[in-house]
Design a binder for these strands. Structure first.
Lengths: 233, 233
DNA sequence: ATATATATTAACCAAACATTAACAAAATGA
DNA sequence: TCATTTTGTTAATGTTTGGTTAATATATAT
């Protein structure tokens, strides 16, 4: 049994804040909710967290300013910004739809949850490389990187080759964020040159083919930087 | 409570030096005052500072020489030059040596303070590129310099090229203040000549186009100096 | 050993990005 | 004022990076 990861949630909208907190707690996180930037910083100093979720738009002290203060104290905690619309609306929509029993219904925005998990996982992989997660939800897909199986809906799972699997896993660990080209090359190909880079491009094409069935899942390129696995919703 | 920022002040004029030191200390900085370049370098080696303020004109060892020595030991400390006149060549030389900003003597103490604070913050954003600040609010825009996207209101974000992104980020780090031409050229183009300068102008034009949707956001030119990102309100 | 799966290399094209050129318009200073 | 420098802008050109497919090479399993 893992010990629960601690999250500092700074969100001024009491409604949304409460819902998100519940949702996160339901997913086995320990959540501290601060109602504004000041309170957020106070709470941050008093404890150690595995992740900070900051609302960007807050009166008096916005998320970025708070992020800077947090960074001065701690260079390592992952920080996730809640940028209004997308996530918030989705979560609230999920709440309204579910009405009395929203807690039982999966939210539309499992994206946020995935992002959170990926970030925490990535971080813990840096410190203790052995404890590695091998199951990922990618839109309507499910990846088991140990069995190297990618399943879609109820269908027969596809078998992935070692490289395909490692690459997809690394993308999943960076959901919604950049997976730098260089990182994949050095970690998976253990070499970074013209040819390995081209080889990687070939694998990206293969993965795109696998992921085609779910039109909400996409691998985007950030020119000269790397790739980004996004789950639209 | 924040821990006081440490400033190394190297100024040969004892009068002016003492006054400046007092003023800075009054504003909660911890100040070490060295009377000449030699002493300045000795003190620099013995401690770590958040900022160095160097007089350009000093006997024995001038500010530039000292700056170069400091840079050899430390690539990150912000360095600000104090100069009586604002000779163009001096400014250029300053940036080449690795200066972060320039202050003309005499100056408004309020302005000085603002600048110092801005520089320290800016630097902390620059030096921790991975873990730190990559989100900026620019009027109604929102820049994510990691994903290189600029979003406006609720619209689909624009994708920025590496150069576009770096330049906009640098402007944002200097909001309401001049971003000196030479600084952008040396840091982003890593070369300062006629062609890179023209290239930069082209990029400024591109950024202006991106920023058009918000009429409160503007990139102004300061003839012969640089550019200024302003957010009217 | 041979089929099969996996991985790399090649070749070609398209897209993204950056620089250069050319000319117009401002700003500056003698 | 006029000559000079700096900046604004657009388009043309050059360069790098990525998408794609297929051919070749390498590894693996039967």
């Amino acid at each position: 049994m893992e010990t629960a990861k601690k999250i500092l949630l700074v969100e001024d909208d009491p409604n949304f804040g409460a819902i998100l907190k519940d949702y996160l707690m339901l997913n086995d996180f320990e959540v501290t909710h601060a109602k504004n930037g000041m309170e957020g910083f106070e709470k941050f100093k008093k404890d150690t967290y595995d992740l900070c979720i900051l609302d960007v738009m807050m009166p008096y002290k916005d998320g970025y300013t708070l992020a800077r203060e947090i960074r001065e104290k701690n260079q390592d905690v992952p920080i996730v910004f809640l940028t209004a619309k997308s996530m918030k609306e989705d979560v609230l929509k999920g709440y309204k739809v579910g009405a009395d029993d929203y807690l039982n219904k999966p939210f539309d925005s499992e994206v946020l949850l995935m992002k959170i998990k990926a970030i925490i996982q990535r971080k813990s992989a840096e410190t203790k490389p052995d404890s590695t997660v091998f199951e990922f939800t990618i839109g309507k897909f499910h990846l088991n990187s140990k069995l190297r199986q990618l399943s879609f809906d109820g269908q027969e799972p596809s078998k992935l080759s070692p490289k395909e699997c490692e690459l997809l896993k690394m993308l999943a660990l960076h959901v919604d964020d950049v997976m730098p080209r260089e990182l994949a090359l050095t970690k998976i190909w253990r070499d970074d040159n013209y040819f390995t880079s081209r080889s990687m491009d070939v694998y990206i094409a293969k993965l795109r083919k696998y992921l085609k069935p779910d039109e909400n899942v996409e691998i985007l390129n950030i020119h000269g930087e790397g790739f980004r696995l996004v789950i639209k919703k």
